[in-house]
Amino acid sequence: MAILRSDRPKPPVHMISRPALCIVAQGAKWATFGTNQLEYRAGQALVVGIETPSVGRVFEASPGQPCLVLALELDLGIIRSVIEELEDPPVLAGDPGCGVWVADIGGPLTDCAVRLVRLMDTPKAIRMVYPLIIREICYWLLAGPKGGEVARLALASPSQGVIAAMHRLRMNFRTPMKIEDLADVAQADVPGRHECRERGLHGGL
């Protein structure tokens, strides 16, 4: 968990985003994933369900009203565990989408965020209480309008090739790389990949 504060707008920052829930309490940010730019502000959260390159920027902040963001890493293993215990699990989304979206935050999720921040006043309770609140957050995400997409992302099992491509991108983030090279790594364990390339179907990341 991290509480991020910005007293002024900041230039864009390149990063590798991991599965996370970024709740804005005040101010506004935008994040770009490929050609998809998402804006989120107070009362909203950016939900990232996959590990992916991104560009983010705080664009609404001032010393009097700083941008305040609560960033929580999402553990897909915990989400899967919660799904297994649900009596009525969400129906998996038919379209996996891009794995990133903006959600309105209110009610139970807001309450969870407030309780997480208050935990900082009682450090001895963090080890016991923090995992319980995170688990509750996973429940409310699954029970929300995007529950099917959350479930699909958590239950998806990326191939070893895709995982290897992610690691190569992370380790060489500042080095120019060709999409074709990453695609070769990602497709390494896919049968018939050479045939696909010959037919013009060799996909990129």
Rank of each mutant, 00 (worst) to 15 (best):
A186D: 07
R135Q: 08
R57I: 02
L205W: 01
G49K: 01
K29V: 09
G94H: 12
L116Q: 06
G77Q: 10
A151L: 04
N172W: 13
D181C: 12
A165Q: 03
V102M: 06
G106Q: 14
T110D: 12
I50Y: 04
V58Y: 03
M166S: 03
A165H: 06
L38S: 00
W140L: 09
A164G: 01
D181V: 14
M177V: 12
C138V: 00
H167I: 15
G200L: 00
G77P: 05
P11E: 07
A2N: 10
L74D: 06
T35F: 08
V129N: 01
A151G: 09
M1Q: 05
G204P: 11
R41P: 10
D111R: 06
A186R: 05
A61R: 04
F59H: 13
L169W: 02
R168K: 15
I163E: 09
R5S: 14
E84G: 03
G144Y: 08
V82T: 09
L72C: 04
Y40W: 13
A183P: 01
S159M: 03
T52C: 06
T32P: 08
A71H: 01
M120L: 12
M15T: 14
S6G: 13
L74T: 02
G106N: 14
L70A: 05
Y139F: 15
I16V: 08
V47L: 12
I78T: 06
V100C: 06
A154Y: 04
